[in-house]
Design a protein around this nucleic acid. Structure first.
Length: 365
DNA sequence: GAACCGTGGGC
DNA sequence: TGCCCAAGGTT
């Protein structure tokens, strides 16, 4: 046995896992929220909910989930749907590759697995967008298999219960917590237990000001016993986002229509629509917008001036957008990645929030 | 392993 | 205001 395993065994021996299971699962049965995706064990629905919930709050997800399941009630429907329609249903949720990966994965399930979600975790794990957490979550929740599913909640709860101060930002630490959760799962009801840990993390064992006095497992918590619950989990700080100055062009033709373009299908905001823009130094905004329009869109436009300044912050990036109005007499014939649309029609395209800010400003003028 | 990939809420 | 945070995955 390695020293690391010995260390882990000592941590685990300090907690009565049997009693922990009973207390946690009983609490969950009495107190869990009645969320839309908990009204079913349909693995497709559980899958969709898990993808939506990645790095996203429950309250944000609920309306998206309801709408998405109405539009794409089965894997067959989602597999056949146009990608633009799928992206539109995700508009505003962020991390858009999630839904493009989901559709691709569903298409594979329909084509190669008789439209049935694989019950083998390792098989399911191979699908696009299905990682270590999502594979364990769907398999344990929908099929009631004893599989760990380590997310932020699980690491927070178990770091406190077992008094573990490893940095939860490290990959190695996530694997450590998979072992911890696997130990706690033995003899449990996997679907109930895994959801209960996450529910506890969401409602009681919160990042700040945890509600220890209401906690059903407070008597099992090593961090609580030492008054260290506020100091765990340990998480290293993220680096500050970098900044980009963008020159944006709202080009309007004589008919009042504006030019939108589709972003490439890789990278930031992949497949979403936007007003044409180019990275620019703050001194050459007008010139840079003008030459971008000519080079990328064959548009010879007169830039009138700046009509709006917007900042938009992503996780790792800040866009400082200088928005200019430009006019053309006659719009050129658009390519596949370009459209000329009225401001009302623009709302039918999947636009990231940064572009919605611009559109709203234009409509308000 | 570290960087990339969105957004909105809470303090 | 600025920062942290939220049921992660891919490259």
């Amino acid at each position: 046995m390695t020293s690391e395993q010995t260390w882990l065994q000592q941590k685990l021996q300090a907690v009565d896992r049997q009693a922990f299971q009973n207390d946690l699962q009983s609490w969950y049965m009495e107190n869990h929220r009645d969320l839309p995706w908990r009204q079913t064990k349909d693995p497709y629905r559980v899958w969709v909910s898990e993808i939506m919930l990645q790095q996203t709050r429950v309250d944000t997800v609920i309306p998206y989930y309801e709408n998405f399941m109405k539009k794409f009630p089965t894997m067959e429907v989602l597999a056949e749907a146009p990608e633009d329609e799928v992206l539109k249903a995700w508009e505003g949720l962020g991390y858009y590759s999630r839904v493009r990966n989901l559709q691709e994965a569903v298409q594979e399930v329909v084509a190669n697995y008789k439209a049935e979600v694989p019950k083998d975790r390792k098989v399911f794990r191979k699908l696009k967008g299905v990682g270590p957490y999502t594979s364990g979550a769907v398999i344990s929740i929908a099929f009631d298999q004893e599989e760990p599913a380590v997310d932020g909640n699980v690491m927070r709860v178990f770091s406190r219960i077992c008094n573990i101060d490893e940095d939860i930002g490290k990959e190695k630490t996530k694997q450590l917590f998979e072992q911890v959760q696997a130990q706690f799962l033995e003899g449990a009801k996997p679907s109930i237990f895994n959801q209960a840990i996450m529910e506890l993390g969401a409602l009681i064992c919160t990042p700040k000001s945890p509600g220890c006095l209401l906690c059903p497992v407070q008597n099992h918590c090593l961090a609580r016993a030492e008054g260290k619950e506020e100091d765990l989990p340990v998480k290293s700080k993220k680096k500050a986002p970098s900044k980009k100055t963008l020159s944006v062009a709202v080009v309007q033709d004589d008919a009042g229509r504006v030019l939108l373009r589709k972003r490439p299908d890789q990278g930031l905001l992949a497949g979403m629509w936007e007003f044409p823009h180019v990275e620019s130094s703050s001194e050459n905004l007008m010139n840079d917008a003008s030459s971008m329009l000519l080079k990328d869109h064959d548009v010879s436009a007169e830039i009138v001036g700046e009509i709006q300044y917007v900042e938009h912050t992503f996780t790792h990036l800040i866009w400082k957008m200088h928005v200019h109005r430009a006019t053309v007499r006659e719009a050129p014939v658009p390519s596949e990645t370009e459209v000329w649309v009225t401001l009302d029609e623009a709302a039918l395209y999947a636009l990231p929030v940064s572009q919605q800010k611009i559109l709203r400003h234009l409509k308000g003028e």
